[in-house]
């Protein structure tokens, strides 16, 4: 059998540090799409609290913290990031393994929101988009998930196949924002 080496989506591309901004790859651990079965949303939220210590997020919100987070991931489903899903969740939700399917990066530093303003149509500045807020939106024509994880930090996810493009677009925007800051 061939001896294969696992590579992360952004291997060889990150980390990156330009001016005061940094772009790093996040090792998310397990990623599981959690889609509540009909009428089971509250029961699922309770099971998630018991098993992983966080509630099921409302639309446009994320729960948990670094290492174990659940982010709202679109119509009728969320993404559990970090721990392997507890088997107890399976009676309330359809669970789909998404590990390794997404490129996950962290953009951090002063002006992080200005960088994203060049790439997405959303207003992601702090008064509009607070810690714990998340959005599914367009990032340079890629379907992205963007979550604020700190006062000047965002977690950005796109399909793994788009990792190169994501890093390229973010790098270009970081350079432009840094240049303007002079």
């Amino acid at each position: 059998m061939a001896d294969l080496t696992a590579k992360t989506p952004c291997a060889g591309l990150l980390p990156l540090s330009i001016g005061t901004l940094t772009l790093t790859e996040v090792d998310p651990g397990h990623m599981t799409a959690v889609a509540p079965l009909k009428g089971q949303t509250s029961a699922l939220s309770e099971a998630l609290k018991t098993a992983h210590g966080m509630a099921l997020p409302a639309p446009n919100r994320a729960t948990g913290k670094d290492g174990a987070r659940t982010i709202w991931f679109g119509h009728a489903h969320s993404l559990l990031i970090g721990p392997a899903p507890d088997p107890s969740l399976a009676q309330y939700a359809a669970l789909t393994d998404q590990s390794d399917a997404w490129a996950v990066v962290r953009l951090e530093g002063p002006g992080a929101a200005d960088v994203l303003a060049r790439l997405t149509p959303l207003d992601l500045r702090a008064p509009q988009f607070k810690r714990g807020h998340t959005a599914r939106t367009d990032l340079m024509h890629m379907m992205a998930s963007i979550t604020r994880t700190g006062p000047q930090a965002f977690q950005i996810m796109v399909f793994r196949s788009m990792a190169h493009t994501l890093v390229h677009d973010l790098k270009t925007a970081i350079e432009a924002v840094t240049a303007r800051a002079g």
């Binding site: 639309p59 119509h75 009728a76 599914r136 939106t137 367009d138």
Partner: peptide, 8 residues
Amino acid sequence: YHEQGCGA
């Protein structure tokens, strides 16, 4: 279809 968003 909210393709580039929530998928609804």
